[in-house]
Amino acid sequence: MTTVPETSSFGQRVLHPLPDQLYATVSDLRDEGFLTAVDVTAVDYMAHPGRTDLPADVSPERFEVVVSLHAHQSHERVRLRIQVPVDDPVVPSLFDLFPGTEAMEREVFDLFGITFDGHPDMTRILLPEEWEGHPLRKDVDTGRIPVQFREAPVQR
């Protein structure tokens, strides 16, 4: 059983494993009865570096992968926040534990550019395959980009 720092956010249990502790932690939790991985998402903290809700022994990084697990029997939820550095954005995939994370991990890869090691199909899911960049990163502009469509003849 690995021990990882634990905090509470608005009454919700939050764990802070390191990337290489993630798989073992989730595996343990699954044996405890957390049978469903509800959600996998990520946050880019580039524009908000001084966040205060991390425990003292966790060093903040730019990216954070957030995994939510759910135990139906004990009506418990737990959230895992994993710090991911920008120069090596790799996290172990949870596919072997929860196949349902396949699409969610692809979404995080698509929108944030975080790679999940061991994922069976690490490709873009929402954006076109030839898209460049990861739009939910904070250094990517929201605004309108020129239409990437080239085939339409000028009509008017």
Binding site: L127, D141, T142, G143, R144, V147, F149, A152, Q155, R156
Partner: peptide
């Protein structure tokens, strides 16, 4: 016109693609 979604994902007006 793209409506409220003036962002990277939405074509800002379908008249750029078809008349």
């Amino acid at each position: 016109s793209g409506g409220m979604f003036n962002n990277y994902a939405i074509v800002q007006g379908v008249d750029q693609v078809v008349p």
